[in-house]
């Protein structure tokens, strides 16, 4: 049983607080998260699992075991992949009810609120939407 999304989000905020305002450390941390993300199964590398974006490609797939959801994700850009890794840490193997209720406010707290703007330049908002839609 994973910790609750709230607790995991708090841990992430805690981890980022150590970097202060140093963006290079934040980005390096993201890339670190990216390379440790569970490998994306090739069977899911299909357009159906692609989240369209102008800047980088993002794949997101999900498997359901009983009432819990397990996500797989990938991106061709490491920083983007690191952002997805941060999203997935919170929702991984949670129930539909927990995922639907998850607040992604911690993204703002760790200083990535710019990444949430609904522009064509990034897909973070689309990723969150896709995660939530998947479990509805």
């Amino acid at each position: 049983m994973p910790e609750t999304p709230e607790l995991i989000a708090e841990t992430i905020v805690q981890e980022f607080s150590e970097f202060g305002d140093d963006w290079t450390l934040k980005y390096e941390f993201l890339m670190e998260q990216a390379i440790h993300l569970e490998p994306f199964p090739d069977t899911y590398r299909l357009d159906a699992f692609l989240i369209p974006g102008c800047q980088s490609q993002v794949w997101l797939a999900v498997e359901r075991t009983e009432n819990r959801y397990h996500f797989f994700a990938d991106s061709d850009a490491l920083i983007t992949k690191g952002m997805i890794a941060l999203l997935l840490r919170v929702v991984q193997d949670q129930t539909a009810a927990a995922i639907s209720a998850t607040s992604f406010d911690y993204i703002t707290k760790i200083g990535f609120h710019n990444q949430l703007s609904p522009t064509r330049a990034n897909g973070l908002r689309s990723m969150i939407q896709r995660i939530k839609q998947t479990v509805v």
């Binding site: 963006w23 290079t24 980005y27 890339m31 102008c54 800047q55 980088s56 061709d76 850009a77 490491l78 920083i79 983007t80």
Partner: peptide
């Protein structure tokens, strides 16, 4: 071996505006 988006993201933090993407 590196995606343009990653390069552009760092450059922005280093005070440089360039365009990345297609």
């Amino acid at each position: 071996g590196h995606h343009a988006f990653d390069v552009g993201s760092f450059l922005d933090r280093y005070q440089i505006a360039v365009r990345t993407g297609h």
